Computed example of a mutant assay.
Amino acid sequence: MATDAPSEDSTPAADGFIASDPLSSPFGSLNDLCYELSSLQELATRGSWRSILDKVSRARKLSLLQKPHEHLCYFSYNVLALIKLRRYGDVSEELASLEDLDHSIYQYESHPDVYPGRSGSMIPFALRWIHAEIPLKLGKRQETLDRLYTLLDFARTRVDEKGSRGLGVSADVWKRREVFVVNSIIGHHLSHKEFGVCVSLIRQLLSGRCRDDPALVSKLGCIQLQIGDLEGAKASFELVEKMGKEERLGSLSEIEFKNLVNRNKALVYLVGKDYVSAVREYEECIERDGSDVVAINNKALCLMYLRDLSDSIKVLENALERVPTVALNETLVVNLCSMYELAYVNHSDIKRTLSNWIARVAPDDFDSSCTRI
């Protein structure tokens, strides 16, 4: 029951599912790009992964997908749904059917009658990311790391290519993808306490094109805390605050940035076991943004450490009631159930009530075993 925040969904943003850049600009909506793509995106947002599998199956059976990139878009949503439903063997088989993602058949110029004047790969970025991640799910960690580092090189090459051609918007997209892949790699190294590699990767980004990214600097500070470098962490967090004064907010909104600063301060207080001050910082975050699940979760944990189980339970229960689509994640539910076990003799009945509610509102991929009934 660590104070680590609930992890954000590590799925690439919606633009990752759209076939590569050459197709993106001439169209005004997702449906212009691909058959009923907006409905797939809506289902994914709701976590209706089984419905996505049904929709893809129906589109294939009725031959509703006409162009190569449409098949790839639907293929991407299909494998994402499978991975969300933990059907990793099926994902591996699906990906194997594509063979080489860089094969010429997946290049626009291989279909000049369909894509006149277009060039480059039509493989969605999210599909490359899933292809990199799936070996880990099958017990092949090193293969996943190898593929992620290859994907990182791929993204960096695209950043350089787009920038040299003066395609600013496209270069920015690939910069975000570069950071996304680095964060994926860092997550794997952190799980094995390989902190030195993580620090090196972040510093490499910060010394280059991501020097104005306060979220990355904050991540560096968090890792420094984990390795016991309190002064280094404080310096990183102070740099984040300085970036705010200079209005270097990166891709964060003003509210997101302010909450990031408060959460950084709270982490330093947590290291010193000053839970009262940490609670104060998290409360500021929640007042600013009631859906800040990181602050909500960690405020509840701080209250628990202060032996205020009643209030810590209320914090999490209120969050589930107010913002269920945001607060309903396994980390928060595990913490709440742990608090029930500490606070109530009849905790099994209470957890069963929670489990029944979760069954009604949770997305298809929610792991209901986290209630430990």
Rank of each mutant, 00 (worst) to 15 (best):
D4V: 08
S10K: 15
A14F: 15
A14T: 14
D15S: 15
G16R: 00
S20R: 06
D21S: 09
L23W: 01
N31V: 07
L33G: 04
Q41C: 05
Q41N: 07
L43A: 08
S48Y: 09
S51Q: 15
S51D: 15
I52V: 11
L53E: 02
A59C: 13
R60Y: 12
K61S: 15
H69W: 03
L72H: 01
F75W: 10
I83F: 06
K84E: 02
Y88H: 13
G89T: 13
D90C: 07
D102M: 10
D102R: 12
D102N: 11
H103M: 02
E109M: 02
P112L: 04
G117H: 03
G120P: 03
P124F: 02
A126T: 05
R128K: 12
I130D: 04
P135K: 01
L138C: 15
K140E: 13
K140L: 14
Q142R: 14
D153L: 09
R158K: 14
V159F: 00
E161D: 01
G166Y: 01
G166C: 06
S170D: 15
W174F: 07
R176F: 09
R177H: 06
E178M: 01
V179F: 01
I186K: 01
H189Y: 14
K193E: 12
G196I: 15
V199Q: 10
I202F: 03
S207F: 10
P214H: 02
P214V: 01
L225A: 10
E231Q: 14
E231I: 11
F237K: 02
V240Q: 00
R248T: 08
S251F: 09
N262H: 12
V271P: 03
D274G: 03
Y275L: 04
C285M: 04
S291L: 12
M304P: 05
R307H: 12
L309V: 10
S310T: 12
K314P: 04
L316S: 09
L316D: 05
E317D: 11
E321M: 12
R322S: 12
P324K: 04
L328P: 00
N329S: 10
V333W: 00
N335P: 07
L336D: 00
E341Q: 11
N346A: 05
H347F: 10
L354I: 07
D365W: 06
D367C: 08
S368E: 07
C370L: 08
C370V: 14
